[in-house]
């Protein structure tokens, strides 16, 4: 790692003030950023650690909206949404490993927007709203390709609002080494629509499979997906699988997610 200072503010206001410095960078749970720093792939002069800010943590429900603080860990989400939003709990409970889940946060994951992160699939499928210190951003507008988001410098994700679906499920096909999704599909069924978010597969990052959403909107059953497929063009190809294989898995995982959500 390069040298840097570390600050541990306890309020959002202090964190924002610290991040006003150009070379400062926010540190969520650090489960992606710290390995990146070890490889000297980032060189902040200052890390602003968000884990001490209580106001960024916690889960609350208001009607059909579930609000999760940006500093809430995967482990907490897995435990506390198990009854109210089991699809999301299932997703959170399979991120990384138990120790990673005790540190990594939903805000950190969404801010990084790794093309193989899990939460973006849920956020897209559910039409979640990303809440920052200054505004609210619809998921469709938030994700802007691999590692790219609508966040401005120094902007912090304070919360994520999920409209809670009637039923949902996330099915992850794991890349055998990293256990990140080679393909992950989140299916969310609402009274008036179905959302299908796909992560891991596309070179453009997370996307909604709108054909599947339309088909499932009319008939929320695996059979509705018959004949539907995504193209292998634009899919990630690497030593773990070709684009064609990933495209195939999108179909399989979507079917399985529908089956699990029904």
């Amino acid at each position: 790692m390069y040298s840097f200072d570390i600050e541990r503010p306890t309020t959002l206001a202090d964190a924002l003030a610290a991040l006003a410095d150009d070379e400062a960078q926010a540190l969520g749970g650090g489960q992606t950023l710290i390995p990146t720093l070890k490889q000297r792939l980032a060189s902040p002069s200052k890390l602003v650690c968000l884990s001490g800010i209580e106001e960024l943590k916690g889960i609350s429900r208001d009607g059909d909206t579930l609000t999760i603080g940006g500093g809430t860990t995967h482990g907490t989400i897995a435990r506390e949404t198990a009854e109210g939003f089991p699809g999301l709990a299932g997703l959170a409970s399979k991120i990384g490993d138990p120790a990673v889940r005790n540190r990594g946060t939903i805000g950190g994951s969404l801010a990084n927007n790794d093309p193989s992160a899990c939460y973006p699939a849920a956020a897209m499928a559910c039409g979640a709203t990303i809440v920052t210190n200054s505004r609210e951003i619809a998921a469709d507008d938030y994700f802007q390709g691999m590692f790219a988001t609508a966040l401005e410098e120094g902007e912090i994700i304070t919360a994520v609002k999920f409209p809670v679906p009637e039923s949902s499920a996330y099915i992850k096909f794991e890349q055998p080494a990293s256990r990140f999704p080679l393909v992950g599909v989140f299916v969310a069924k609402y009274a008036d629509r179905v959302g299908v978010g796909v992560t891991g597969a596309s070179e453009e990052g997370v996307f909604r499979w709108t054909e599947a959403e339309a088909a499932l909107g009319g008939n929320f059953a695996e059979s509705a997906l018959e004949g539907l497929s995504v193209s292998g063009d634009g899919m990630i190809g690497d030593l773990h699988g070709t684009g064609a294989y990933r495209a195939h898995l999108v179909g399989v995982m979507t079917r399985r997610a529908v089956a699990a959500a029904r």
């Binding site: 570390i6 541990r8 650090g30 710290i34 005790n102």
Partner: peptide, 12 residues
């Protein structure tokens, strides 16, 4: 809670 001590700063 179990954590990976290689992925957490001492200051944290």
């Amino acid at each position: 809670a179990a954590v990976k001590s290689c992925t957490m700063f001492a200051a944290e």
